[in-house]
Amino acid sequence: MSIPGAEDSIDPSTFEQILEMDEDEVEREFSKSIVYDFFTQAEGTFTKMDTNLDKKDLKTLSELGHFLKGSSATLGLTKVKDSCEKIQHYGQLKDETGTKDIKEEEALKKLETIIKQTKDEFHEVEKVLKEFYNDDE
């Protein structure tokens, strides 16, 4: 089951796996709670990322990237997950694939960009998901 308009940002089979955990296909209580929990977690993480970007704490940024990567992967939020992985790499002073070393200055610059991009990607998928759960807030 794929979500219309979000094929490239949400992995169908992974998300489907979550949906299959719902007991009621109309209420979708479980998956909805997971998705909304994720929204909260993501916002919280972004706040922390901003703070640590100011502090130039690369190690914490890398850990935060890894943290959010885990849950976004679980939900199949491919784009967010990929960007989080980049945050993780840049925080470790590596390039986006995690293979080559980069300088701290470059890393901070890239982090600023990628965090912003991750937020955008998140808000985009958030919108799709909210629509999916018929939430018009």
Partner: peptide, 16 residues
């Protein structure tokens, strides 16, 4: 598992 979202999903999956 430290991430509670993953925890929740895994628990649900295993219970399933």
């Amino acid at each position: 598992e430290d991430n509670f979202i993953n925890r929740k999903v895994m628990l649900r999956m295993l219970a399933g």
